[in-house]
Computed example of a mutant assay.
Amino acid sequence: MDDAFDDLLTANRAYADDFDMQGFDGIARAGVAVVTCMDSRIDPLGMLGLKPGDAKILRNPGGRATERVLVGLVLGGTLLGVDRVLLVQHTRCAVATNSEEQLLTRVGEAAGQDAHWLAVEAISDQRRTLAEDVHKVASHPLVAEHVRVGGFLYDVDTGLLERVA
């Protein structure tokens, strides 16, 4: 084994020293699920004033309501206490500021092989995409009727959320 993860394991041991979520049942205490981008500038809990245990967090490139995300939201709404879903995309997102071709070319160049078989699903219009994803989640037959869904744009330069759908 190499030492590539040693710094993280050391940090984990320090984290575990003060760990206080023993016995937690996994129910979203604030009734919230957040679907957002994998971008490291986004702190899903912090931006909403929440803490660990309050929300279910699902992340992917672009913050899209993919088929696997829908599975998570179905489970969240039926079994894990979720009654509000925030779909959050963000400003200056690589998936929303580059075309599919640009992204696949860049990936291919970095990987040293053709990447055009990969579906990145670039976003050409975030507001339209958010509206479509809100509809996709809200109209899913297994997402509980009591679950409210909203689409938001997070500004990575100000930390503010804007409701757009």
Rank of each mutant, 00 (worst) to 15 (best):
L50N: 06
K51G: 07
K51A: 14
K51W: 02
K51T: 11
P52Q: 06
P52G: 04
P52C: 10
P52K: 07
G53Y: 01
G53Q: 08
G53M: 01
G53D: 02
G53A: 05
G53P: 04
D54A: 09
D54V: 04
A55G: 00
A55S: 12
A55D: 02
K56N: 10
K56Y: 13
K56R: 15
I57E: 15
I57L: 11
L58T: 01
L58R: 10
L58G: 04
L58A: 00
L58P: 01
L58C: 00
R59I: 00
R59N: 12
R59S: 00
N60I: 10
N60G: 12
P61V: 09
P61Q: 00
G62D: 00
G62H: 07
G62V: 11
G62P: 04
G63D: 04
R64Q: 15
A65K: 01
A65T: 08
A65L: 05
T66C: 03
T66P: 03
E67V: 05
E67I: 03
E67Y: 07
R68N: 12
V69Y: 02
V69Q: 13
V69S: 05
V69E: 11
L70P: 10
L70H: 07
L70N: 10
V71F: 08
G72H: 07
L73R: 02
L73D: 09
V74S: 15
V74K: 09
V74M: 07
L75S: 01
L75P: 08
L75T: 02
G76L: 11
G76S: 02
G76M: 14
G76E: 02
G76W: 00
G77H: 06
G77A: 10
T78H: 12
T78Q: 15
T78I: 10
L79N: 15
L79R: 14
L79T: 07
L80F: 15
L80R: 10
L80G: 09
G81I: 09
G81E: 14
G81C: 15
G81Q: 11
V82T: 14
V82I: 06
V82Y: 06
D83T: 11
D83R: 13
D83C: 02
R84K: 11
V85S: 05
V85Q: 03
L86W: 08
L86A: 12
L86K: 11
L86G: 09
L86R: 12
L87Q: 05
L87M: 14
L87D: 04
L87T: 11
V88P: 03
V88C: 14
V88D: 11
V88L: 13
Q89H: 13
Q89G: 14
Q89T: 06
H90E: 01
H90D: 06
H90I: 10
T91E: 04
